[in-house]
Structure formats: structure tokens, C-alpha cells
């Protein structure tokens, strides 16, 4: 009967999204299970090299969330491809400090999406190193 802290926090975030919506270009796609969410990410505006593209970001939360960072990857399947970006592997793995030593428990699913969106927005070259 006692909900885990992680579940409670996630439920809160969901309700928050339900009430306030998400920022432009970030679209909640599925919350099939309580601890695995998928968001569609698009970069807005004319400046971007990702104009018109959509990427699916999958977040998997452990029961230590938000103390521990969720596992975040871009989906790579028939429907979605990860963005061409120096810090994104072709299998969707993302190399970003916010998922390492810069993770903070004050961050949320939506703030992760915003970070990913601006990571893409600031990229000028479609390159993949890995």
C-alpha cells in the first residue's frame, strides 16, 4: 500500500504534465508502464539542422529515482532513428554529463527532454563519431 518514493514522484510529474502540458516540441508519447516513458523531441525554428525531424526519447526510471538518474536513450527501431549528433551513438546511447556526474535529483523527465532538445538545437554539424 505504501507507494515507493520513486513511484510517487513519477505520478506527480505525470499529473503536472497533465495539468500544465509540456514545452513546445516535447510531446509525451507513451507511459505504458509507470517507470518507462517515451517522449517525442523536435527542435523548433528555422535555424536547426534537425528541421522537420522527430526523435523518440526513452526514459527508464529505477526505484532510486530521483536520487539516481534514469536510463535515457534515443529509440533506434523501424519507426524512429536517433539524431545524427557527435554525442549520440547509432544505437541511441547518449553521452551527456547530465546522465553522469551532473545529474541532480531536482531534475525531472521534462527537464531531461529540454536538455536533450537544446543539445540538439545547439548542434551545427550532423556528425556521428561513434
Amino acid at each position: 500500500m505504501a507507494l515507493r518514493l520513486s513511484t510517487k514522484r513519477l505520478m506527480k510529474e505525470l499529473k503536472d504534465i497533465q495539468e500544465k502540458g509540456t514545452p513546445a516540441g516535447i510531446i509525451p508519447l507513451s507511459t505504458e508502464s509507470v517507470d518507462e516513458w517515451v517522449f517525442l523531441i523536435c527542435v523548433l525554428g528555422d535555424e536547426t539542422i534537425y528541421k522537420g525531424e522527430q526523435f523518440a526519447l526513452r526514459l527508464i526510471f529505477s526505484d532510486r529515482y530521483p536520487i539516481d538518474c534514469p536510463q535515457v536513450t534515443f529509440i533506434a527501431d523501424d519507426q524512429y532513428q536517433p539524431p545524427l549528433h557527435p554525442h549520440v551513438y547509432s544505437n541511441g546511447h547518449i553521452c551527456a554529463s547530465i546522465f553522469g556526474n551532473e545529474w541532480s535529483p531536482v531534475l525531472t523527465a521534462v527537464s531531461i527532454c529540454i536538455t536533450m532538445q537544446s543539445m540538439l538545437a545547439s548542434n551545427k554539424k550532423k556528425e556521428r563519431y561513434v
Binding site: 505520478m11 505525470l14 499529473k15 504534465i17 497533465q18 502540458g21 509540456t22 510531446i27 509525451p28 508519447l29 507513451s30 507511459t31 509507470v34 517525442l40
Partner: peptide, 18 residues
């Protein structure tokens, strides 16, 4: 029901944005 509601809400949001 809550999860369902939320999912419905997500669906609606998604459709709207699409």
C-alpha cells in the same frame, strides 16, 4: 484509472500537437 486517465491525456496532447 489514474494511469488510464493520464494516458488518455497523453494521447490527447499528442494528437493535438500532431
Amino acid at each position: 484509472r489514474y494511469a488510464q486517465d493520464t494516458k488518455g491525456e497523453f494521447e490527447r496532447l499528442r494528437r493535438e500537437i500532431m
